[in-house]
Design a protein around this nucleic acid. Structure first.
Length: 319
DNA sequence: CCCCAGGCAGCGC
DNA sequence: GCGCTGCATGGG
C-alpha cells in the first residue's frame, strides 16, 4: 500500500512514549486518531503541513514513524522538530520530585502506566487561541472550533508534489485581527463574547503589544507570563496556565480545572480544592500542588496524574 | 427540561 | 480578599 505522504522519517525512542496520551494531554486539538489497514495512526496539521505519526511496532520502547507533506517543518528536519514538539528531550525522570516518590509511593506506582506521557510543545499563538475556546466546552466542541478557525480563516494548501492534500494552517494573529466579527463568531459556536475576545487578543499580538516570544520560558518567569496573559479579557488563571505550560514552555505552570481539583482533594486532602476558587485561592492551591509534586516540572507531573485520574479512577475516555 | 462541558468577569461585602 | 451569581452555547 502506497503511503499517502511523500516524506518519512523514523524516530528511535530512547525512552517510552504514550502517543495517545501525549496528544491528548498536550491539548493538540487538531490531531485525530485514525485507523488505516488495522494500524492506529495520529493525523494532524502542524505548521501548515499534514503529518501522520505511527509506532513502527507495538512496543512502547519502539520507534516512531513520521510522515509529512514536507521534509522540513519550520526549516528543521522532521526528527528534530518532533523531538521537541513531543517533548522527547524533556527529562521524565525529573517529572516527579524524589520527595513525592517517597511520600506517595502508591500513587507514584499506580500512575506508572502513564509515565510515557509527554506534554506537547506547541505553537504559542495557536495554543493561546485554542485555549480561549476551551471555557465551558467539551473536548469535541473545542476541537471543532480550532478546526473551523483553520478551515475558514487560515491559509490552505491543496497540492504538494502532485499529491492532492488539503491542509489548513492555523490563522496568524493578523488574519484573526482582520477577520470580520461575524466570520469569527461562526468559528466560536456562535459565542459573540468569545469572538470579540479572540479578535482583541489577536490584535494585541499582531500589533506587537503582546509578545508571546518574550513571555516564553526562559525569557520570562511564569508569573510575568501569566500576568500578561490574564490582562486580556477572556483569559483567566486556568487558561493562562494552560498557555504557559503547553505553548510557552513554562513547565512549572499548574493548570487547575474541575478534574484537577477533584484529585487534589481525593489524593492530597487539599480540601480547598472542592470549595469555590477565588483568584488568590487558585494561586494558593497551585503553590501547594507545586510543593507536593516539585515545582520545576509540576505541570508535567500534574498531567500524568490528571490522565490517571480521568481514565482509571473516573472511567472517562481519552479523547 | 435537565445537566454537563478542563471558566471568566463583575458585583457587593 | 472572599463568595456568590450571571453568562453563552451545544450536546446528551
Amino acid at each position: 500500500m502506497r503511503s499517502l505522504l511523500p516524506y518519512c522519517a523514523v524516530l528511535p525512542l530512547a525512552v517510552p512514549l504514550n502517543l495517545e496520551a501525549s496528544l491528548f494531554c498536550g491539548q493538540a486539538f487538531r490531531w485525530q486518531v485514525i485507523t488505516e489497514d488495522g494500524e492506529k495512526k495520529f493525523r494532524g496539521v502542524v505548521e501548515g503541513e499534514l503529518v501522520e505519526l505511527a509506532r513502527t511496532d507495538e512496543s512502547i520502547h519502539g520507534s516512531l514513524r513520521i510522515e509529512s507533506t514536507a521534509p522540513l517543518i519550520l526549516n528543521q528536519p522532521l526528527e528534530k522538530f518532533f523531538t521537541r514538539y513531543l517533548g522527547l528531550d524533556d527529562p521524565i525522570e525529573a517529572f516527579f520530585a524524589p520527595e513525592f516518590q517517597h511520600n506517595y509511593p502508591d500513587l507514584f506506582a499506580a500512575s506508572e502506566h502513564y509515565f510515557g506521557l509527554r506534554v506537547l510543545h506547541q505553537a504559542p499563538f495557536e495554543t493561546l487561541i485554542s485555549f480561549m475556546c476551551a471555557q465551558g466546552m467539551g473536548i469535541a466542541l473545542i476541537r471543532r472550533q480550532a478546526d473551523l478557525l483553520a478551515t475558514n480563516l487560515g491559509s490552505t494548501t491543496t497540492e504538494q508534489n502532485f499529491i492532492p492534500i488539503t491542509a489548513y494552517e492555523f490563522p496568524t494573529a493578523a488574519q484573526l485581527a482582520e477577520a470580520p466579527l461575524a466570520a469569527l463568531q461562526v468559528c466560536t459556536n456562535n459565542n459573540s463574547i468569545r469572538a470579540r475576545n479572540i479578535k482583541a487578543v489577536a490584535s494585541l499580538v499582531a500589533r506587537g503589544d503582546l509578545k508571546l516570544e518574550t513571555l516564553a520560558s526562559p525569557h520570562a518567569s511564569l508569573d510575568e507570563a501569566r500576568n500578561a496573559l490574564m490582562a486580556c479579557s477572556g483569559i483567566g488563571e486556568k487558561i493562562a496556565d494552560c498557555v504557559c505550560l503547553f505553548g510557552l514552555g513554562h513547565s512549572d505552570a499548574f493548570p487547575i480545572d474541575t478534574h484537577v481539583r477533584q484529585y487534589l482533594d481525593a489524593w492530597f486532602g487539599l480540601r480547598t480544592a472542592t470549595q469555590s476558587l477565588t483568584r488568590t485561592g487558585y494561586d494558593r492551591l497551585a503553590d501547594e500542588a507545586r510543593k507536593i509534586l516539585g515545582a520545576k516540572y509540576a505541570g508535567h507531573a500534574g498531567q500524568i496524574l490528571f490522565h490517571y485520574w480521568r481514565l482509571n479512577v473516573r472511567g472517562l475516555t481519552a479523547v
